[in-house]
Amino acid sequence: MTFQTNIMKRIKILSLFTVVVTFLSCEIQTEAKTLRLGHGLDVSHSVHKAMVKMGEDLLARSGGKLKLEIYPSQQLGTERECLELLQIGSLDMTKVSVGVLENFAPKMKVLGLPFLFRDRQHSFDVLDGPIGEKLLNEGEKYWLKGLGYYDAGSRSFYTMNKPIEKPEDLVGEKIRVMESATAVNMVKALGGSPTPISWGELYTSLQQGVVDGAENNPPSFYLSRHYEVCKYYSLDEHTVLPDVLLIGTYVYDKLTEQEQKWLNESVKKSVKYQRILWAEAEAEALREVQKAGVQIIRPDKTLFAEKVEGIFEGYKEDKEMYSLIIQIQETN
């Protein structure tokens, strides 16, 4: 009887231990949170690589309590669609161009103004400072919280049929632009015909002659393989338009203060890493498209800048926006 009693006690203890282990395991699983991040770029893009790095850092920093799942290449929709998913809480994070974000956070459109920044360093000084921070918070009333800016270099025109050496060369040319009123106004001011088309549809649109060209930075021109269709790349560098990493406010507000800190620290590290990758990718892209037969044109930028001065004048009636423009221009 004693032997049987001992066996029964051990079975009860083991059963209790199993219950405790199962409970603790469930607790650990419920503590771990997964943030789903959708974006439209290729996996070879510097932004995607920086996001992967961010996920690794976040996992290590949080001790496995915060994870990042990344869905690239428009798997979850276009940039605009991903923003809408964030607003309703169906997606946690995304990366979009400022040009698209201005439809959801109007003051962001200031960053899309042509020839706003003196050079790349000037743009970093603005974005990393109080002006950039204020703009990141601009989308919160639209349920979108900005976390940081990824470098997207300078945007320039690329075309199929002729080189763009001066603004007059854009007259009559159908140029693809983002769904951005600022981009539309800029191309109009330069004499072109702006045509909003989603990024994923652009290659086919170029092939079919729906548009004559587009405008974007060197890595995007290269990685999208648009150089296979467009053999002229004019480096007028009209806009320095960053990418913005965002999280839905529904999701962010549910994170603990510690989790928010982990996320923000991982984002900052990711941004620094991406800027290094971007500089390398930009140089490589220009080398590779030239090898593929693309003619690189370096036009007189002042000719283009003069044509768009009226866009700045149009903001004088909006005192708040015009003040923001002046603050950016005067940032050292």
Score class of each variant (00 low, 15 high):
residue 235 L to M: 09
residue 87 Q to A: 03
residue 78 T to R: 13
residue 102 E to R: 10
residue 206 L to N: 03
residue 196 P to T: 04
residue 103 N to H: 06
residue 322 Y to F: 11
residue 328 I to H: 03
residue 29 Q to G: 12
residue 202 L to R: 09
residue 106 P to K: 09
residue 47 V to Q: 06
residue 325 I to H: 00
residue 129 G to M: 05
residue 37 L to Q: 00
residue 319 K to N: 07
residue 258 Q to M: 10
residue 20 V to T: 12
residue 76 L to V: 07
residue 274 Q to R: 07
residue 111 L to F: 14
residue 233 Y to L: 03
residue 250 Y to L: 15
residue 95 K to T: 15
residue 200 G to F: 04
residue 186 M to S: 00
residue 101 L to C: 07
residue 286 L to T: 08
residue 137 N to E: 14
residue 281 A to E: 15
residue 239 T to K: 11
residue 219 P to S: 03
residue 184 V to K: 08
residue 137 N to Y: 10
residue 278 W to G: 02
residue 258 Q to N: 15
residue 213 G to L: 01
residue 242 P to T: 11
residue 102 E to L: 06
residue 119 D to V: 12
residue 187 V to H: 02
residue 227 Y to K: 03
residue 37 L to D: 00
residue 97 S to P: 09
residue 130 P to Y: 13
residue 35 L to G: 06
residue 68 L to D: 04
residue 171 V to E: 12
residue 130 P to Q: 09
residue 283 A to E: 15
residue 176 R to Q: 15
residue 116 L to H: 14
residue 205 S to G: 05
residue 33 K to D: 06
residue 281 A to V: 06
residue 102 E to Y: 01
residue 259 E to N: 15
residue 216 N to L: 07
residue 79 E to F: 11
residue 328 I to Q: 01
residue 97 S to H: 10
residue 138 E to T: 11
residue 176 R to P: 01
residue 207 Q to G: 00
residue 287 R to D: 15
residue 50 A to K: 00
residue 154 S to H: 06
residue 146 G to N: 11
residue 164 I to H: 14
residue 270 S to N: 08
residue 33 K to Y: 01
residue 231 K to M: 03
residue 175 I to G: 00
